[in-house]
Amino acid sequence: MTEKRKGARSIKDIPQEILEQLNQGKMETVNLTEWLAVDQKILLENLLKQNDKLHYLQPILENINTLKKQTVNTINEAIGTEIFNLTVKNNDKNFLDTVAKHSSDLVRCWATYTIGKNQNLSIAEKLDKIKIFVADHHFGVREICWMAVRSDISENLNESLQILSMWTSDKDENIRRFASESTRPRGVWCAHIEELKQNPELGLQILDPMKSDKAKYVQDSVGNWLNDASKSKPDFVMNVCEKWLEESPTKETKYIVKKALRTIQK
């Protein structure tokens, strides 16, 4: 199990046998170091061999080779995109299911893009289908899944915010956290959502219900959301924080407010 194994702190310290198993898709990564160390091209080839899909390899590698910059995230997206294209072309739903339920976290990351790139799905359908990955036990899958649908959220902002506002009361903290993390005005490793930078009040339907969330994972995301907003609308953030502290003087709210105001109070 993932929680029973401690990962190396640097890529050079990862034991060769562990790296081989990661590249074969036989185990999950346990930290960011391992996640960055996996050779996705080797993992892909092993996955395709194991499922008699080696004829998919060349088109996917060609897609990767067109990338202007090859990073873990761009390669991840390129593989997921081309897997989607090939499975659609070949009516290969079984392989799509295999990818979505695979034991390797990187392979499941690819699966999130098979949802994000499916333009036959409405934003409501995409969010419904991505939810299983939102609740994934692995940090990498949870991070990639919001990136896979963020552009759709941005393009369908009002509907997305309305849907995600209902996620803020879910018993799963990962699902609650996705509501704020996927809609951060600036975010990390992603395009900004200009509408939320200029009109952050639109996000209150998501933020207000989580202003005193018990999970630190959620608190960090809500605080970061407001910190993003403070860079373009500092007065809005200061007013929200003041209001929250009056309405909810809990240690959780105080922690969120401190995180939200860190740029303003520099």
Rank of each mutant, 00 (worst) to 15 (best):
L57R: 12
N31W: 09
T33N: 10
P15H: 00
Q21I: 00
N76H: 03
K68H: 10
A8Q: 07
A37N: 04
K68E: 14
W35M: 01
N65W: 00
T81C: 09
L57Y: 11
P59G: 03
L44I: 06
Q24F: 06
E82V: 06
N46K: 04
T29H: 05
I42E: 12
G80H: 09
K6M: 02
I11V: 09
L36I: 08
E62S: 13
T71Q: 01
I11Y: 01
S10F: 04
T71P: 07
D52A: 13
K26T: 07
L22D: 06
N23G: 08
L43G: 02
I64Q: 08
M27Q: 13
G25M: 07
N76P: 10
E82M: 15
I18N: 05
Q70Y: 07
Q24P: 03
L67E: 01
T74W: 04
A8F: 06
I83H: 10
K53T: 11
Q24I: 04
N63Y: 03
Q40H: 15
Q70A: 13
V38G: 01
P59A: 13
V38S: 02
N23T: 03
N51G: 00
L61G: 05
P59V: 05
K12C: 06
L43P: 06
Q50I: 11
N65D: 14
L47A: 07
Y56R: 03
Q70C: 13
M27Y: 11
N76A: 07
N46V: 01
I42V: 13
A78I: 04
I11R: 13
I83D: 05
N23K: 04
E77S: 12
G7V: 07
Y56P: 07
G7N: 03
K53I: 00
R9A: 13
E28Y: 01
R9E: 11
I42S: 02
E20C: 00
I11N: 02
N63A: 12
K6R: 14
N65R: 07
N51M: 03
E17W: 01
I64S: 07
K6F: 15
L48S: 01
L47Q: 04
T66L: 14
S10P: 01
L57V: 04
Q50K: 08
G25L: 11
K69G: 00
Q21Y: 11
P59C: 05
L36H: 09
I18Q: 05
I11H: 02
T81R: 11
N73T: 09
L36G: 07
L44M: 09
I60N: 01
E17N: 14
L22I: 08
Q24G: 08
Q58R: 09
N65F: 00
T81H: 12
K6D: 05
I83F: 15
N65H: 06
E45H: 09
N23S: 00
N31R: 03
V38I: 12
E82Q: 15
L22N: 05
P59E: 05
Y56L: 07
I60F: 10
D13I: 09
I64R: 08
N31V: 08
N63M: 15
P15S: 05
K6S: 03
I79T: 10
E77N: 14
K49A: 05
M27T: 15
E20Y: 01
